[in-house]
């Protein structure tokens, strides 16, 4: 048990070293959510409220929690998928042949992905505040951290599940284009879900990120489509389900 904690720490530490050394990845991963936030925010302005957005809430305030969700979605899925990089570069073998339980390996990776994801999310939150979002209360901020952890863990699990079943990097762009981007657009991150036709709305309701973004909105700007309890329960359940799935598939993977 103690040894496993040590291993979790070791894997987390490696993720940190890699993250801060790969400057291009650091800036690359924060750049696209930042541009979304900055240009959409400036384009629509924070003044006039858009249709479907509760009155008195500016677009930047509405958008920031959405872009935080986006940041977490991308960074967490990548963190899960980074098993593929390790497979490609052989390092996965070094991890898999050590006497560390598979669950500790999964937890170490999750801890690493969580840390880097939330770090980036907070940078986006600060950018949102600079662009006009009101500074959240301490309670609101702490509650938003809870939702951030749940969102990140959910999608680390998803990334891990895919990485465990994929032989190499060839399916990567497929996952990007047919999974991650649709999850992002269908989460209500950019505009209220009411704008979608009913069929598409159903898809949005099946998307865990929808509840994550909604929970973040409740925490940070006090306006949400669902009750925060509903957000918490649905997101929490998908978090447990996807992380378990990822851990299970990773556990059964063979390294050649």
């Amino acid at each position: 048990m103690i040894k496993d904690l040590y291993a979790i720490y070791s894997i987390w530490l490696r993720e940190m070293l890699r993250f801060f050394r790969l400057k291009s990845r650091l800036f690359g991963s924060i750049a696209s959510p930042f541009f979304f936030l900055a240009f959409l925010g400036m384009g629509f302005g924070n003044g006039a409220s858009l249709p479907g957005i509760p009155p008195g809430i500016g677009y930047v305030s509405f958008l920031t929690p959405g872009i935080i969700g986006m940041t977490l979605l991308f960074s967490a899925t990548f963190a899960g998928l980074s098993v593929l990089w390790d497979r490609e570069f052989g390092f996965l073998k070094e991890i898999m042949v050590s006497p560390v339980s598979r669950i500790a390996i999964v937890l170490g990776r999750t801890a690493g992905g969580l840390t880097t994801g939330i770090l980036q999310a907070i940078i986006i939150m600060l950018s949102g505040i600079l662009l006009g979002m009101k500074v959240p209360s301490l309670q609101g901020f702490l509650l938003s951290l809870v939702f951030m952890v749940l969102i990140a863990t959910t999608f680390i699990g998803l990334g891990l599940a895919f990485a465990s079943k994929m032989e190499d990097m060839s399916g990567f762009s497929l996952i990007m284009n047919f999974l991650i981007f649709p999850l992002f657009f269908l989460s209500g991150a950019l505009f209220p879900l009411d704008r979608f036709p009913p069929v598409v709305k159903v898809l949005a309701y099946l998307n865990p990120l929808t509840y994550g973004v909604d929970g973040l909105r409740y925490s940070l700007i006090g306006a949400s489509a669902f009750s925060p309890a509903v957000d918490f329960v649905i997101l929490g359940s998908s978090c447990i389900a996807l992380l378990s799935l990822g851990a299970y598939l990773f556990d059964t993977t063979e390294v050649n």
């Binding site: 490696r14 790969l22 050590s98």
Partner: peptide, 27 residues
């Protein structure tokens, strides 16, 4: 202990860090 046919090191880490990682994984 295993030395694989293909390199299995983390190129982003130094030699010492790779060894340190390994030592921690073995408690």
């Amino acid at each position: 202990g295993v030395v694989f046919q293909d390199p299995a090191v983390d190129g982003m880490l130094t030699g010492r860090e790779n060894l340190d990682f390994h030592g921690r994984m073995y408690g």
